[in-house]
Simulated assay, not measured.
Amino acid sequence: MTRMRKIAVLLAAASATLLAIPPTSASAIPQRPLFHENFDHLPLGPVTAGRGWTTDTSDGSLSVERSADGHGRELRLHTEGNGRAFLVLSDLAPPGNSFWARLRLRVERFPVAPDWAHWTLAEASGSDLPTLVRPLGGQYVPTEKANFFGVGSDLGPTGDWTAWRTSAPATAGSWSCVEFHLDATDNRVTVYLDGREQSDLTVSTEQHGGTADDFVFPRFDRLKLGWQLYQADPTPSSYDLRMDDVTLSTRRVGGCAS
């Protein structure tokens, strides 16, 4: 075989190989998250800041501890009374003012007093409007003698409200994979618990637990994740929450790492 024929054969084989490889779509390209933290690279002990986040506490503390299963590390948040302890993401600028969040959570105990005790696990805000959007939170409902998740808001035109639902019970002492989507196209909050959409918890511009005024997102630049209880002298008198595998993205991330 002449040299020129060998080259032609090699070029033909290379072309056939390239044609056999399916084109890569834009959706198949791995996307870099807006934020990710699994706490595995932080030293054990009290913590006031991490990679791209700070803390906000009052009668509360945050610490990095070994995971109970011995794999990796997790964040423990502790409060006394109606204190607060939050991991804080500042200087957010999500594209289109919309984003997905996914995290693992374990609340050791929920309040059983006073009646209607109100707690928050996530709070998004912006400097342009006073509205606080609370995609994860809930209340102790004395008529049901149980705690339930509810999306809520405070300040702004719709005031203070928490749209809890008995279809979304808050279970203490076990890990949950929690997701929420803040979609600015119609100021919609969608919540997923362990991979399942909780449609009863969805709120939007005209579908929410506040007044007749429209519910409108601020331009998000801050997200707090942690625990706050608002009523004084609650029972129990202290609270512990564990958090791991936190991710923010412009797309749904999916299930939590085990």
Results as ranks from 00 to 15, higher is better:
Phe39Arg: 03
Ala122Phe: 02
Asp186Phe: 01
Glu108Trp: 01
Ala13Trp: 09
Gly81His: 09
His71Asp: 13
Leu136Asn: 01
Pro46Gly: 13
Phe35Leu: 08
Val189Ser: 04
Leu103Ser: 00
Asp115Met: 02
Pro157Thr: 05
Val9Lys: 04
Glu206Lys: 13
Phe220Gly: 12
Arg134Thr: 13
Ala49Trp: 09
Asp69Val: 06
Pro135Trp: 08
Ser238Ala: 13
Ser249Asp: 15
Pro30Ile: 02
Ala8Ile: 11
Leu87Cys: 09
Gly195Tyr: 01
Asp56Ala: 15
Gly159Ile: 08
Ile29His: 02
Arg134Asp: 05
Gly60Pro: 08
Asp240Lys: 08
Asp244His: 12
Pro30Asn: 10
Ser27Leu: 11
Cys177His: 06
Trp116Phe: 14
Leu155Thr: 12
Leu19Gln: 01
Leu248Ala: 09
Gly255Glu: 07
Thr205Cys: 04
Leu89Gly: 03
Ala113Ser: 14
Thr162Val: 01
Arg66Ser: 07
Trp175Pro: 06
Asp115Pro: 06
Ala68Asp: 15
Asn82Ala: 10
Asp59Glu: 13
Leu229Phe: 11
Thr158Cys: 00
Val133Phe: 05
Arg252His: 08
Thr120Asp: 11
Arg32Met: 06
Leu248Asp: 08
Asp69Cys: 12
Gly45Cys: 12
Pro94Thr: 09
Leu155Lys: 01
Ser127Ala: 15
Leu129Pro: 01
Asp221Asn: 15
Thr54Asn: 12
Pro43His: 06
Leu225His: 06
Ala13Asp: 02
Ala14Ile: 14
Tyr192Asp: 05
Ser63Ile: 10
Gln31Ala: 14
Phe148Leu: 04
Thr211Phe: 04
Asp186Trp: 04
Ala113Pro: 03
Thr162Trp: 00
Pro135Thr: 08
Gly137Gln: 07
Arg106Glu: 10
Pro30His: 06
Asp115Arg: 04
Pro94Trp: 03
Leu225Asp: 11
Pro169Thr: 02
Pro23Phe: 05
Gly83His: 09
Thr190Pro: 01
Arg106Leu: 14
Gly50Phe: 14
Arg134Lys: 15
Thr205His: 12
Asp200Gln: 07
Val107Cys: 10
Asn187Leu: 08
Asp91Arg: 12
Glu123Asn: 11
Ile7Leu: 15
Thr235His: 14
Ala49Met: 11
Arg66Lys: 12
Gln231Arg: 13
Leu223Gly: 07
Val246Gly: 01
Pro130Val: 04
Gln139Trp: 03
Asp56His: 14
Trp161Val: 00
Glu65Thr: 15
Gly210Phe: 05
Val189Asn: 01
Ser127His: 11
Phe86Asn: 13
Thr2Phe: 01
Leu241Arg: 04
Ala68Ser: 15
Asp240Val: 13
Ser125Ile: 01
Gly138Ala: 02
Pro218Leu: 11
His78Ser: 13
Asp194Glu: 05
Ser199Lys: 15
Gly156Met: 02
Asp221Thr: 10
Ser237Asn: 07
Arg106Asp: 10
Leu225Pro: 05
Val189Trp: 06
Arg165Ser: 15
Leu201Cys: 02
His208Tyr: 03
Ala49Cys: 11
Ser98Asn: 06
Leu92Asn: 08
Ala20Leu: 04
Leu136His: 01
Thr211Tyr: 09
Ala122His: 03
Thr55Phe: 08
Gly70Asp: 14
Ala212Met: 11
Glu144Pro: 00
Gly255Asp: 10
Thr158Pro: 03
Ala12Thr: 08
Trp164Asn: 10
Ala16Tyr: 06
Val107Gln: 14
